[in-house]
Design a protein around this nucleic acid. Structure first.
Lengths: 121, 121
DNA sequence: ATAAACCCTAACATCAATGTCAGGGTCAAT
DNA sequence: ATTGACCCTGACATTGATGTTAGGGTTTAT
């Protein structure tokens, strides 16, 4: 499978596939002409990469356990739990911050709507 | 007041003060030698800029209403309400996304802890 | 053999506020 | 007059996944 086919099969841009390779996430054989040649497992692997990226993990973090999770259940890969836990803490911090900002915005919006009363057309 | 004094008075770096000027947020007179000269209102203005930045607004957005809010109550500045409302929508989207990721992470963490059971030391 | 559709590498661009460095004036106190 | 502490502008760096372009080789079908 050439890179264009893998791109179409996964919906991931050629640019991103090459980037994943450089980040050590996705290996490819080379044909004699230099073209990348992917086996059919590559599709599943790219989908997996995209999934972990959608959890907000970095390519660096994913590289730390991808090889393991492609061959085993997650619970078998001891590297993954601390990554998940660290990410969960980050997410919680971010949610807290966003909620604080949200409250602040809501208060200020309410205040504006009250004070301007009927003045707004 | 020179830029170093303003920086110390507000805790904002000199670099940032110059950046705010370039973004049209903070004006300064110039002494004959080219040094920036700030009046005492600048301190309040920088604090105000920092506050709006902490709400996640961009310098561009802040520039759209800062002049007004430095002289009036927020409710007087009609430019500010749509900015707040747009930002609130963004924040809500981000919170929703983070909550979805959080649920996903929590499920996967729970699953790992269950399945590995007593296997982890 | 030529054109369209592929593939390759390398490199710059994105976003946005801030850090940092280079190269060079200015001012104050000794 | 020299030193240290200021100030100036301009420009590159940061972050990280992805877009885009340039310049060039390959393959396939006509």
């Amino acid at each position: 499978m050439k890179i264009g086919e893998l791109s179409k099969a996964t919906g991931v841009s050629i640019r991103s596939l090459r980037y994943y390779e450089k980040q050590g996430l996705l290996a490819a054989d080379r044909q004699l002409n230099g073209y990348r040649e992917y086996n059919k497992m590559a599709i599943e692997q790219v989908v997996t990469i995209q999934f972990y990226l959608s959890l907000g993990l970095s390519t660096d973090q994913i590289a730390g356990f991808l090889h393991c999770v492609m061959k085993n259940k997650e619970s078998f890969c001891k590297e993954i739990l601390p990554v998940y836990q660290k990410k969960l803490e980050e997410i919680n911090s971010q949610i807290d911050l966003l909620n604080a900002i949200k409250s602040n915005l809501e208060e200020r919006i309410a205040s504006i709507l009250e004070e301007s009363g009927g003045m707004l057309q």
